[in-house]
C-alpha cells in the first residue's frame, strides 16, 4: 500500500510539473533527433515497466504462501523442481528475445539519427571554454566568418552541422529538446547534426563536469526563419556600433584603457582579445555570462562589478572601477546591439 501511495504521489508530481518544464527537456522534443529519442525513451520505459510489474507479481506469489514455521528444508519435490526449471528457462529465453529486440531497435534508431544531418548546408564550430561557448559560423568567404558566444542562431527547418571541440577541459554540448549530447574534447573534433522543426528558443547546458562553474554554462539555440537568420548574420558581421552619448563614449575609452581589452574583442575597435567572449554585439544577446543572467543594464553592471559574486570561480577578474566608470562602461556595452 505504502509503495503504491509513493508511486501515485510521484506520478502526481510528474503531471503537476509537466506544465512548467519543457524548455530544456528530453521529453518535449522540438526537432527530428529529439523526437526519435523521445519515442525511444518512452518505448524502452514502457517495456521496462511491464517487465518490472511481471517480476513483482512473481515475487508477490510466494509472499502469499508465507509460513510462520521453519519447515524442514531438504525435503524436496523433484517434480516441482523440474517444472520450475522449465519456467526459469522460458523466462531467460524471453529476456534474451527482449534484449535482442531492444539492441536492434537501438541500432536502427542510431542509423536514423545519423541520417538527419547528411545534407547540412551550414557548419558552425562550437568551442568549449571554462565556462562559456565560442561559436564560429564557417563560410567559404573569409569575410563572412562570424564569431560570437553562447547563443547559436540557426535557420529553422534546416539541418545544421556543429563541429565540437575544446581548448581547455572536456565539456559536453546538450540541447535536450533538439538532440542528444556530444562531448567537446581537447585535441578532438566531434560532429553533431541538429535540426529544429520550428522557430523558437531552446536552452541547453554543459553536461560534462568541467570545474567550478559547470552549473552556469548555459547555451541557447535560437531557431529563426531563413530570412531572419540571414539578416541576423549580416548584422553580426558589422563592426560594433559607434557609441552615442557622453557616457557611452567615455565607456569605450575606459574599455580600451582598462584590462578588458586583454581578453575581449569588440569588432571595429582596437580591442582584440580572444580568450573571452566576443563583445561586438553583446547587447543583442539574451543572456550574460553563458546563461547566468538575463541581459539588462543592471545585470551588466552587476556582472562587471562583481563577477566572482555572480559566478564564483569564473575567469573574469574584478576590475577596479569607480561608480561613474562602471556606469560609463555599462552604457557603452549596452549600446553594442
Amino acid at each position: 500500500m505504502k509503495r503504491l501511495a509513493s508511486i501515485a504521489f510521484a506520478t502526481a508530481i510528474v503531471l503537476f510539473l509537466q506544465g512548467c518544464a519543457g524548455w530544456q527537456s528530453a521529453l518535449d522534443p522540438k526537432g527530428p533527433a529529439a523526437s526519435e529519442l523521445a519515442w525511444l525513451i518512452w518505448f524502452f520505459a514502457g517495456l521496462c515497466a511491464v517487465v518490472w510489474v511481471l517480476v513483482m507479481a512473481a515475487l508477490a506469489v510466494p509472499l502469499m504462501m508465507r509460513s510462520r514455521q521453519h519447515a524442514e528444508p531438504l525435503a524436496l519435490d523433484a517434480g516441482a523442481d523440474s517444472r520450475k526449471l522449465r519456467v526459469v528457462m522460458i523466462a531467460v529465453g524471453l529476456t534474451a528475445v527482449i534484449l535482442v529486440g531492444l539492441t536492434l531497435l537501438s541500432f536502427f534508431a542510431n542509423r536514423t539519427l545519423a541520417a538527419i544531418g547528411s545534407d547540412a548546408a551550414l557548419t558552425i564550430r562550437v568551442t568549449g571554454h571554462q565556462w562559456w561557448w565560442e561559436v564560429r559560423y564557417e563560410d567559404a568567404t573569409p569575410s563572412r566568418i562570424l564569431t560570437t558566444a553562447n547563443e547559436i542562431h540557426i535557420p529553422a527547418g534546416e539541418p545544421v552541422r556543429l563541429l565540437l571541440t575544446s581548448t581547455d577541459v572536456i565539456h559536453s554540448f546538450w540541447v535536450p529538446s533538439l538532440s542528444g549530447k556530444l562531448d567537446l574534447i581537447p585535441g578532438r573534433m566531434n560532429v553533431l547534426d541538429i535540426k529544429a522543426d520550428k522557430p523558437g528558443v531552446y536552452r541547453g547546458q554543459c553536461a560534462e563536469f568541467c570545474g567550478a562553474q559547470h552549473a552556469n554554462m548555459g547555451t541557447f539555440i535560437i531557431a529563426e526563419p531563413r530570412a531572419k537568420f540571414d539578416a541576423w548574420w549580416n548584422d553580426q558581421l558589422q563592426p560594433a556600433a559607434a557609441p552615442t552619448g557622453d557616457e557611452a563614449k567615455a565607456g569605450e575609452n575606459l574599455f580600451l584603457k582598462r584590462p578588458c581589452v586583454m581578453c575581449h574583442k569588440i569588432g571595429g575597435t582596437p580591442a582584440g582579445g580572444t580568450v573571452a567572449p566576443d563583445l561586438t554585439h553583446v547587447a543583442s544577446r539574451q543572456t550574460l555570462a553563458a546563461g547566468t543572467l538575463t541581459m539588462s543594464r543592471g545585470n551588466l553592471a552587476a556582472w562587471i562589478a562583481d563577477p566572482q559574486g555572480v559566478k564564483p570561480g569564473a575567469h573574469m577578474p574584478v576590475v577596479d572601477l569607480s561608480g561613474d566608470e562602471l556606469n560609463d562602461i555599462v552604457a557603452y556595452l549596452e549600446g553594442l546591439k
Binding site: A34, E36, L40, I41, C48, T103, A109, L182
Partner: peptide, 17 residues
C-alpha cells in the same frame, strides 16, 4: 531495467550525465 535503457547508444546520449 534503466541500465538496459542506458545501454542503448542513442538513448544514452539524452540521459548520460
Amino acid at each position: 531495467l534503466t541500465g538496459v535503457m542506458l545501454a542503448s547508444v542513442p538513448l544514452d546520449l539524452q540521459v548520460h550525465d
